[in-house]
Design a protein around this nucleic acid. Structure first.
Lengths: 108, 108
DNA sequence: CTGTATACGTAGCCTGGCTACATGTAGCCA
DNA sequence: TGGCTACATGTAGCCAGGCTACGTATACAG
């Protein structure tokens, strides 16, 4: 998959993967790999700054868990993040409808 | 629609709208508006450079039509452009499957 | 003879994902 | 005991590529 086609959809992915559960950054990357059958392998330099940004935006809340001496910053959706996720899903629907319509559409 | 979510999909749109017909730049913009029910309103600063790029890449061929004193550079798909369009369509399929899978997917 | 729609084009900005790097722990194996 | 691998977080700076803001020019309506 073309790498940069992710532009503008990363937030949706991160919010979606955190829907209904708490995960730390590294686990988020692995969860995305799993759900996409390996198609998505986001570098940490993509994910960590994005998580920070989403937290600053109020969509995520984080806390430090220390598990057997290992630090993990776990994230979960806030109320506001839930709404943002719903909005992202709606936007994704619209996006695919529009682009898909043009790509598949008969000569209009 | 978020403006920059187009990233990486513009070429596909341009190739698709030229599938089976010749159009000039201005008409391409209008055709995209039509096909998308007004959702896509690409600025000329986006479309013209992209067309030039696609031509340099060998996917489009252009010629000057002079209609009643008005210059129009009309574009059409080359053989290579047809292949590129097919590839873009396949990639779009994969892209929507992957992202859609994550967005809609149950907690995996 | 001015305004609007048509038509093409470029310079430079800006966003945001990515590369490359820096840092440190846990656990296994020899 | 030393080193390797997996785990885990983070930042600085690069870079692609769509967009903004221009500049140019013609046809036609009023």
């Amino acid at each position: 998959m073309k790498a940069d086609s992710l532009r503008g959809h990363l937030d949706a992915l991160l919010l979606a993967v955190l829907d209904g559960r708490k995960l730390h950054g590294y686990a988020i990357i692995e969860a995305l790999q799993l759900r996409s059958d390996g198609a998505l392998d986001l570098p940490t330099g993509t994910v960590y700054p994005a998580l920070r940004r989403l937290e600053r935006a109020g969509f995520l809340a984080s806390e430090w868990d220390v598990v057997s001496g290992r630090k993990r910053r776990t994230y979960k959706l806030t109320r506001s993040g839930q709404k943002a996720l719903a909005a992202e899903r709606a936007e994704w629907q619209e996006f695919t409808t529009v682009i898909g319509g043009v790509l598949g559409g008969s000569t209009a």
